[in-house]
Design a binder for these strands. Sequence first.
DNA 1: CAAGATATATCGGTAACCAATCCAATTGGA
DNA 2: TCCAATTGGATTGGTTACCGATATATCTTG
Lengths: 150, 150
Amino acid sequence: MASSQCAGTVDARGLTDVISRLRRALRRSIRTDYPWELRPVAQVEVLQSLGEGGVTRVGDLAERLCLAQSTVSALVGQLVSAGLVTRDVDPADRRAAIVALSSAGRTDLRNWDTAHRRRLRAALARLSPTDQRAVLAAVPALGRLVDALD
Amino acid sequence: MASSQCAGTVDARGLTDVISRLRRALRRSIRTDYPWELRPVAQVEVLQSLGEGGVTRVGDLAERLCLAQSTVSALVGQLVSAGLVTRDVDPADRRAAIVALSSAGRTDLRNWDTAHRRRLRAALARLSPTDQRAVLAAVPALGRLVDALD
DNA sequence: CAAGATATATCGGTAACCAATCCAATTGGA
DNA sequence: TCCAATTGGATTGGTTACCGATATATCTTG
């Protein structure tokens, strides 16, 4: 009664709270999955974005990921050193850098993805069908919420 | 076609991705709301947890927040220095620390909450009614998902 | 009372950011 | 054509956000 209010009222605390906790829980579960050599999560996110969006400029990556350009620049640098992505000068606009997955990066991403998907699916399977539906339905809506936040 | 799969398949990438982005977008919007003196987000989360759960031990806080005990210990220390919470020895078990909001902390939390709620509500208002419903419905479900992840 | 268990605190380190600034290339006039 | 303003990125110099290991009391129980 205290926590659920009339439908129109947004429970801001509830949403931000669950987002933080979920992120940390996911991070922890990832670490459990990968006791061996594991890339920092931020780097994996860059790989994923490249996996989905394909070859991209650094600035576009930053926007997609809601990160500052300088942050992405540094992350890409780390991934280049690790051999997981390539960074080349765009011949059309020589200021720009074209970032792409290397084949090693593609493999790494695929492995990570498989394990992570398995774990998340297991967790979801423990929820009630109603909750599962609610989570699935929320994913695209939350994406649009990100855009609606400034 | 590439991104949406059959209903039963969990889109792990989509969920983790949107969680990260949403968290960063929220953080950014918070900073926009509070150009003046602003507490680090992690500290605010502790205040919130205290606001909901009331007087608590450090270890309980850590569990609620999905954080390591050492992390919470440090955060509480910072909040004590800032005068926003009190930390006293539990007379019943003198190893334990009892953490509670001070009145300054209560005020701070209330202010923060008001502004943040307003902003989040504005963002949600820009979504379609369907999306709004989906987000609202997902909050409790996501909370249970956290528990289901290990 | 002597071992373990517990609850915290502290220390040392890494990851995850951002803002400011610098550089090179591009672009839009005058 | 040349110069100013703009733009894409890299670098630098922070701060925050964590965690693991260890040290210190304090319980608890045989």
